[in-house]
């Protein structure tokens, strides 16, 4: 590990060479939009919202999985990136059934926030209106796949932090969807510990506590960073 100097949006900064562009940017209050990324979980690189320009590289690179290097020149904003980010958010709205007004996470949703921060006031892509069935078989939690964005935070937290690996993804492409155990109802899962970590890391209202009405579900995922720190100290 060593310290390197780089520039992000013309601002001269320093960071460690084992840090990602995203980490260094955030440490200096430079905002890069993300959705699948969450501190305390492994990186995924699937949402593509954090794509940035790096000088000398003709491809866009995901800030969450790209480490900084000496002399790196990063640009996190451009008309092109803004257009791509808007389309990514629009794609998410178009592929699911996101009815913000009646959602438990209305007002506390990362997808809703992202749409607003990217200046989206309507979805120009046609909605696909998939038929997805809600799983309310668990005693304490509900999974509503209509609101799922397949960020896989639940899969990762369950596997990496809780160690249960109850969640996983089945199917391919547009048919990819979350399952519990070997595609059994969540309530019948033999691996689920009912810890609720998946619910807390879910960026939308796809996973929520039973009994919560529209706009009442507030997620708390700060525990992850704390757990990560404590585990590192112990090891």
């Amino acid at each position: 590990m060593r310290v390197v100097t780089l520039s992000i949006n013309g601002q001269h900064l320093s960071g460690r060479n084992d840090e990602s562009v995203l980490q260094v940017a955030r440490a200096h209050n430079i905002d890069i939009p993300t959705l699948c990324q969450l501190d305390g979980l492994s990186t995924w690189g699937g949402c593509r919202l954090c794509l940035v320009h790096v000088e000398g590289n003709n491809k866009l690179v995901p800030a969450c999985v790209t480490n900084v290097f000496e002399g790196m020149v990063v640009q996190t904003e451009s008309e092109r990136l803004a257009r791509y980010r808007r389309m990514i958010i629009e794609m998410l709205f178009s592929e699911g059934n996101h009815i913000c007004s009646v959602c438990v996470s209305n007002g506390n949703c990362e997808l809703q926030d992202a749409a607003q921060s990217q200046g989206i006031d309507h979805i120009s892509l046609p909605y696909l209106y998939p038929e997805r069935t809600v799983d309310a078989s668990h005693d304490r939690f509900t999974f509503d796949p209509n609101r799922c964005v397949l960020c896989t935070r639940c899969v990762r937290v369950c596997d990496e932090v809780e160690g249960a690996h109850t969640w996983d993804v089945a199917g391919r492409g547009i048919k990819a969807h979350l399952i519990t155990d070997l595609n059994q109802p969540w309530g019948e899962s033999s691996s689920c510990t009912s810890c609720g970590k998946c619910v807390q890391v879910c960026p939308t209202g796809a996973l929520f506590e039973k009994g919560k009405g529209a706009g009442e579900m507030v997620k708390k995922n700060e525990f992850l960073v704390y757990l990560e720190e404590m585990r590192q100290k112990r090891s």
Binding site: L150, V169, G173
Partner: peptide, 21 residues
């Protein structure tokens, strides 16, 4: 491509379907 997309990243998962449509 839409059928064979793995579904991990959004542009390919959703974009191929819209392009096909």
């Amino acid at each position: 491509c839409a059928t064979e997309s793995c579904g991990k990243c959004i542009p390919c998962r959703v974009g191929t379907v819209h392009m096909r449509d």
